[in-house]
Amino acid sequence: DETGKFLVLALYDYQEKSPREVTAKKGDILTLLNSTNKDWWKVEVNGRQGFVPAAYVKFL
């Protein structure tokens, strides 16, 4: 159920650099879980949760 969740689009490829991050490919649609940090947003992609740089994604 996606009610109340926001989707964001990956603008660039991002390769995770730590276990707390997730890899995303340009064009991926990610479920935004938390955007309270202006630099790192928590997302879910391909069943995995983790952080990506906020500058790499935008709201749909």
Rank of each mutant, 00 (worst) to 15 (best):
D1P: 14
E2H: 14
T3E: 12
T3D: 12
K5C: 15
F6V: 15
F6G: 10
L7T: 08
L7S: 06
L7N: 04
V8M: 07
V8E: 00
V8S: 00
L9K: 07
L9W: 04
A10D: 01
L11R: 03
Y12V: 09
Y12I: 09
D13N: 05
Y14D: 02
Q15E: 14
E16V: 04
K17P: 03
K17D: 03
S18A: 08
R20D: 12
R20Q: 13
R20T: 11
E21C: 12
E21Y: 07
E21M: 06
A24T: 15
A24C: 15
K25P: 02
K25H: 11
G27Y: 04
G27H: 03
G27V: 03
D28N: 06
D28K: 03
I29K: 04
I29A: 01
I29F: 05
L30M: 15
L30P: 00
T31V: 15
T31E: 07
T31Q: 10
L32S: 01
L33A: 02
L33C: 12
N34Y: 07
S35L: 07
N37M: 07
K38E: 11
D39Q: 10
D39W: 14
D39P: 02
D39M: 12
D39T: 12
D39E: 12
W40G: 00
W40R: 00
W41M: 03
W41S: 00
W41Q: 01
W41V: 08
K42F: 15
K42W: 15
K42H: 10
K42S: 05
K42I: 14
K42C: 15
V43P: 00
E44I: 06
V45Y: 06
N46M: 08
G47H: 03
G47K: 02
Q49H: 07
Q49Y: 06
G50A: 03
F51Q: 01
V52Y: 11
V52D: 01
P53S: 06
P53Y: 09
P53Q: 05
A55S: 14
A55L: 10
V57I: 10
V57W: 04
K58A: 13
K58P: 02
K58Q: 13
F59V: 14
F59P: 11
L60G: 02
L60R: 00
L60H: 06
L60A: 05
L60D: 02
